[in-house]
Nucleic acid binder design. Sequence first.
DNA 1: CTGCTTCACTGGTCATGACCGGTCGGACCA
DNA 2: TGGTCCGACCGGTCATGACCAGTGAAGCAG
Lengths: 241, 241
Amino acid sequence: MSAPITRGQGALHAQLRARLAEQAARLPAGAALPGERQLCELHGVSRVTVREAVGQLVADGVLVRVPGAGTFVAERPARSRLHLASFAEDMRRLGLRPSTVVLEVALTDPPDNTREALVLAPDAQAWHVRRLRLADSEPMSVDDGWYAADVAPDLGDHDLTGSVYTLLGDVYGAVVDRAEQSVRASEADPPTAQLLGLAPGRAVLAFDRVARSGGRPVEHTRSVYRGDRYEVAMSLELGRG
Amino acid sequence: MSAPITRGQGALHAQLRARLAEQAARLPAGAALPGERQLCELHGVSRVTVREAVGQLVADGVLVRVPGAGTFVAERPARSRLHLASFAEDMRRLGLRPSTVVLEVALTDPPDNTREALVLAPDAQAWHVRRLRLADSEPMSVDDGWYAADVAPDLGDHDLTGSVYTLLGDVYGAVVDRAEQSVRASEADPPTAQLLGLAPGRAVLAFDRVARSGGRPVEHTRSVYRGDRYEVAMSLELGRG
DNA sequence: CTGCTTCACTGGTCATGACCGGTCGGACCA
DNA sequence: TGGTCCGACCGGTCATGACCAGTGAAGCAG
């Protein structure tokens, strides 16, 4: 079980969460975890902390709680659930040929909401990568991504026509394993419309995403997809979505 | 502030959550809520309960917590977390008052894609229910639903201002437990725009959903939400390895 | 008036202890 | 052998009390 959980290495529930995530990954789906009270004794923390850690993993779909029975590793058959995929993977899944035009790469002061999303210091800078994404040589989306400079110090020196997630994982050791995103419909502003080959005001699907690596936010992206070329598919289930 | 929070009316945090959601919906965006300790005294509950209630509303995008400063009403629009729920339930979670105007109920020949989605015989008819959905008396969406006639033979005889899912479960024993949907951005056509109180061509979020009960498709819905009032949030995960 | 310090207050975190209702397996009885 | 009952154990909920770091405004010093 390696090092014990101690104060000073970040929040206790964050440490425990990482510990439990590792453990769950090595267990087969459906396997039972120790009871919450037992985890308290095992790691020397209170039940508040255990519940916080387990609760986060349940929210992520890694664990499943069953009242009266216990906590279990979530079943995850290879069904078509929402999954984390790069633009290229996504396009290839749709049978389209992906390509990318890098419009801008710069180390700049990020906007306030990005600063908040990435939990950056007030004076910290971040890499800003603006890219036009094409599918079968036709514009599909415009991505504005911001990356914390302390996670990816020399991001601008790398080839950014491919997957930044791969770069983050292979070069900087920050594998993106989780993301939260919101989706809304809005109208294309003139510059974006021109890039996408649309008339201004046409409907676009706007994604706002925060990608995390081990709980730490590493990327904040705003992607604007052409409404006439793209849609998101998802499945919903009773109980947990 | 109405009735106080009491034991026995469901979990205390659930009651408080509903109370706070209503309160937040009536406040302007950015307005500050009472501090957590103050809410404890106001409602006679412990801080554990307050934090649970507020935490849920933060997850739903209704409130925003700022460490050191306070808790505030989030900027528009209503953000719904991805889950299988009726319109009314969804809106109430966000602190909005749902209502419904039934525009059309008829047993008709469904369009081909609906026939396919519901796996209907070539000559089978289906109930068509068209409804305008309001939140706080303002248009939110227009729903076009088709229901297999052999699953719900006399659907048209029932009150359709409420949840059809509840009807399907309680009256016909077909509990909806799974659904697949796709989401895209498009432009409001003139009749839909008029119903939604939008100018024609404004962006809308269009859902195309097939709901299932025990594997059998029972509903095919196309819902068009106002792009300026609604958005969906979801989390993405890497597959287990 | 400006700049700095101080301090009340906020949410974030954590420990301890308690009770509830549901689950499940083993003991016990028919 | 089979069915029933019961108790250990589970997660869900809630109260109380505590300390921390960050915020922001009031107040003081220059």
